[in-house]
Nucleic acid binder design. Structure first.
Lengths: 160, 160
DNA sequence: ATAATTAAGTCAATATGACTGACCTAAAAA
DNA sequence: TTTTTAGGTCAGTCATATTGACTTAATTAT
């Protein structure tokens, strides 16, 4: 018996049960993103575009720096995606009070796309949780929140 | 008020609450995969290699076809990753009873890498769920399972 | 007033993970 | 004997992300 198994033995959640959670994380995330992915593909965008639109919708007048800190990608990576979104009129840039900064907001076109994409995920979640009681849903949310690194839990709380 | 908002109004889980779940799915999955990703990077492998190793460990003597149906990628995509794993001695191929098929299994080297990678995620989950009661964990597992598409829920049940 | 830091942008090269389409071989099933 | 299945391969493409080096303009600190 490995050290890890020994550690887990006293729990009703043994290694096999935890491995099921690993698999559910993989399958659920894949199926969760597949809906928007199909819509994005038609307009030659990818998942990264959805994420940008999503967080700009969430926090209006977000700066580039703030967006980068949420997405945790390099500015070179963001650059390509953001430039496309601006060029094609989904996102509008304006200069902040600090004139070094730029503030991002959605155009009408951007709002429409954001709604179209996020509605797929919102409805998917709605259709799942409508069949559960409050305790189960709270358990889900609490555990999922703890799966996030502490640093990012703070970030989550900041934007919520 | 949009149609979607109307639909959600009677629930204690309104659109904003559901959007928090969307964000938690994103943050938790990212943080969940970051640990193994760092280890894989050192040996010039990626997340795809981990997935192959993971499911070969899980279902010994898996065929290529079965693996493709779990991963839901094309054989051309799998090809590069699998060939690397075989070439570098992590995965061993053998011919099945049906001589068209190939059976995949882990070498000792493969077992070691699988353990190293999966232990990171197992311990992460262990450290989360040890602080929750059985009801919360069951809520988490039940809801997460329903987030998986029905077709893939069946696949999950087949391998578990 | 000057120096240092910060926010943003850009160029270039590279890696990973995925795709489509076309085509092939060998074995099993119809 | 024909058809289907399992697996493999070549070629081209795309999306996401990285590192590293460098620039500009604005704000802060000394």
């Amino acid at each position: 018996m490995t050290d890890l198994k020994k550690l887990l033995t006293p729990l009703f959640l043994n290694e096999n049960e935890i491995r099921k959670i690993i698999e559910l994380m993989f399958f659920s995330y894949r199926d969760f993103t597949s809906g928007p992915d199909k819509v994005l593909e038609k307009i030659n965008f990818g998942r990264a575009h959805h994420r940008v639109i999503y967080f700009v919708k969430k926090s209006n007048n977000l700066t580039i720096k703030e967006l980068l800190s949420i997405l945790q990608i390099t500015k070179q990576s963001l650059s390509r995606v953001l430039n496309q979104l601006v060029k094609e009129g989904y996102i509008v840039l304006s200069t902040g009070e600090d004139k070094r900064t730029k503030k991002l907001s959605l155009s009408k076109k951007g709002e429409q796309l954001e709604k179209k994409l996020s509605e797929i995920q919102i409805l998917k979640i709605y259709n799942v949780i409508k069949n559960f009681d409050e305790n189960d849903i709270n358990g889900f949310k609490k555990v999922l929140f703890q799966m996030v690194d502490i640093k990012n839990q703070k970030k989550f709380n900041e934007i919520n």
